[in-house]
Structures are given as structure tokens and as C-alpha cells.
């Protein structure tokens, strides 16, 4: 049902943009838009799930308890240290070799290339994001942590109210980068039968041998990354709204005095 809805959406989009796009794009337009949605889907799900895995992973990584930090370190080391393509092939073709996997409850999920792509992209990005967050956590000024401690905050409150919000602020630009990298990583899903934007472009290319297909794909990818960059910057501004010059009426002539009002 969702597939039908998406199909009608992509046909709708195509009928709107049809008159202003080149003919060889129009011919395969629904396929391009369909692939675009799949790419967006992979990106959205993997980045949200990846962040959810990354937060506890980063906390474990900075923990002084070795039972937590060593497994987290290993996880991050392994999944950051191997190519995404290798991970995809190992999960898609590698796991499927074992009959135990084929007979297990997880097979209906692993059977589908789309799910394998979601799982692998999630794991891969969570390792990177955990490391980015670790940097953020370590970047929180000591004074703030000490102040929280001096106020008598227990560790859980300290993390929730002081360290993590600050860490996110510090890590945000790097995190935005990682989401863009993840978007580019989704193109590899086309190697395991997923018809994402890249998969659709390659399939169309196999029919008309027109290299322009990849130009159209690149433009669509650029639009997506533009949208991401823009929304990340917007949110960054919001996160750091307390650090900019204070907006006071009629003071635009003297920005220096306005700045002086900000606590260091």
C-alpha cells in the first residue's frame, strides 16, 4: 500500500517537473524519483537509528569502566576501520552462506537487501557518530562539569543536563558532515540489489547507455545534500542561539556594546 502511495507520489512529481526537464530524464522520471525516495528512506532511518546506537556507545567509550569502554572501543575500531562495501558484502552474501542463518528467525529480515542496507548503514554510521560524540563529550569545559558536580548533581543528571547538551553543540557540525557522508554511502546499497537512486540510475543506464543518467542522479544527490546542509546549519544556529550577539532594539548601530552584554 505504501509502495502504491509512493508510486503515485513519484508520478505526480514527474508530471509537475516533466515540462521543465530534459526528454531523456522524463522518460525514466518515475524511476529516478522512486530511487530518490529509497535513498532518502535509507538515509533517514539509518541516521536516526545510528544516532540512537551512538549515544550509549559514546558514553561507554568514555566510561572509566573497562568492561564498557573496551567493547565500545572495539566496535568503533572495527566498523570505522573497514570499508562500507566490505561490510555490506559480508552481511549480505557472507551471513547468507550459513544454513543456521537461513533457518533462523532473522532470515526474513536478512533476506531482503533493503533491510541489510539499513542495518549495515546504521552500524557503520553509529561507529562514526559515537567517535564524533566522544570528541564532543571530551570537549565540554572542565569547569562546567566541576560546577555541576559542586552543585551536587549525580552523574546521570550531570550527563543529561550539562555534558550531553554541550557535547551535542560541539559535535553538531561534525555530525552534519557525517550525515552527508552517510548519504553518499547509501549509493553502495545498489550493489546488493537495492534500487536506490544509484541503483535506478544504473538500471536505466543499462537500457539507454546514456551517461547523462548519472548527471541527473548527481543533481538529485546535490539537492538532497543541499537540503541537509541547510537544515543542519539552521539547527546549529538554534543550538547556539545563546552565544550570538544579543538582539536589542535600535542597537544595530553599535554591535560592540551589544556583544559586551554576552557573558564570557
Amino acid at each position: 500500500m505504501i509502495a502504491d502511495a509512493l508510486k503515485s507520489v513519484s508520478e505526480g512529481v514527474c508530471s509537475v517537473i516533466g515540462p521543465v526537464t530534459p526528454d531523456n530524464f522524463v522518460q525514466y522520471c518515475p524511476r529516478f524519483i522512486d530511487g530518490f525516495f529509497t535513498t532518502f528512506e535509507l538515509l533517514a532511518i539509518a541516521s536516526v537509528l545510528g544516532l540512537m546506537v551512538a549515544v550509549p556507545m559514546a558514553l561507554a567509550r568514555v566510561s572509566e569502566n573497562r568492561l564498557l569502554s573496551i567493547p565500545a572501543y572495539t566496535y568503533i575500531y572495527v566498523f570505522r576501520g573497514t570499508p562500507l562495501l566490505v561490510q555490506l558484502f559480508l552481511f549480505y552474501f557472507g551471513l547468507a552462506q550459513f544454513e543456521a542463518v537461513q533457518n533462523s528467525f532473522i532470515w526474513p529480515v536478512l533476506r531482503d537487501g533493503w533491510w541489510v542496507a539499513v542495518i549495515v548503514l546504521t552500524i557503520n554510521t553509529s561507529a562514526y557518530v559515537a567517535e564524533i560524540l566522544r570528541g564532543g563529550i571530551l570537549g565540554v569545559p572542565n569547569g562546567e562539569v566541576e560546577a555541576a558536580r559542586a552543585c551536587g548533581m549525580p552523574a546521570s543528571t550531570r550527563y543529561r543536563r550539562v555534558i550531553l547538551p554541550q557535547a551535542f553543540r560541539i559535535a553538531w557540525p561534525a555530525y552534519g558532515n557525517e550525515v552527508i557522508l552517510l548519504m553518499k554511502g547509501t549509493a553502495l546499497a545498489s550493489t546488493i540489489t537495492v534500487l536506490d537512486l544509484m541503483g535506478q540510475s544504473r538500471t536505466i543506464f543499462s537500457r539507454n547507455y546514456d551517461l547523462m543518467n548519472f548527471v541527473y542522479a548527481a543533481v538529485l544527490y546535490l539537492m538532497l545534500s543541499g537540503l541537509l546542509t541547510w537544515s543542519f546549519r539552521l539547527f546549529e544556529k538554534r543550538l547556539n542561539r545563546h552565544t550570538g550577539p544579543r538582539k536589542t532594539e535600535g542597537s544595530s548601530k553599535k554591535p560592540d556594546t551589544a556583544k559586551a552584554g554576552v557573558p564570557a
Partner: peptide
């Protein structure tokens, strides 16, 4: 080869 692989593993 990849297609044969997926025929064998039941996908």
C-alpha cells in the same frame, strides 16, 4: 555469480 549466490541461499 552474485545472482547464482542468491539463488543458492534462497533469496
Amino acid at each position: 555469480t552474485a545472482a547464482y549466490e542468491d539463488l543458492k541461499n534462497g533469496r
